[in-house]
């Protein structure tokens, strides 16, 4: 099945297959991010700016700030989780694990 993703309510959350899956307010641990020099960047998600999906892999660029140094910005693409291509069930990554924002560009529709 096609994975349907939406970023809604001023970017407050990401819907995957019409189910609210990822919210603002989580702290994401980012390694090698462009946000700041902290290692890792202790990143508070304040809004989802763009979302994309490819082969069930759901990604987003997130606006927020490092709560260690206060630098704000928008991340490169971060994997939020994966949607099962058969059932549509979404399995989220754990934000507090370390993630590496990906600069690769993909065919993403701006929402």
């Amino acid at each position: 099945m096609v994975t349907s993703i939406h970023q809604l309510d001023d970017g407050a959350w990401v819907s995957v297959n019409d189910s609210r899956e990822v919210n603002v307010s989580d702290l994401w641990q980012l390694a090698r991010s462009d946000i700041c020099d902290c290692d890792p960047t202790d990143f508070l998600a304040e809004g989802f700016v763009e979302v994309s999906v490819a082969c069930g892999r759901v990604e987003a660029r997130i606006a927020g700030q490092c709560i260690g140094c206060g630098t704000d910005g928008v991340t490169d693409w971060l994997e939020l989780g994966r949607a099962d291509p058969d059932t549509g069930a979404f399995r989220s990554v754990v934000p507090s694990s370390v993630h590496v924002p990906d600069r690769r560009r993909r065919l993403a529709a701006k929402e």
Partner: peptide, 10 residues
Amino acid sequence: GTEYCSLSIV
């Protein structure tokens, strides 16, 4: 706030 609202952080 977070009692009901999707947007709130706290």
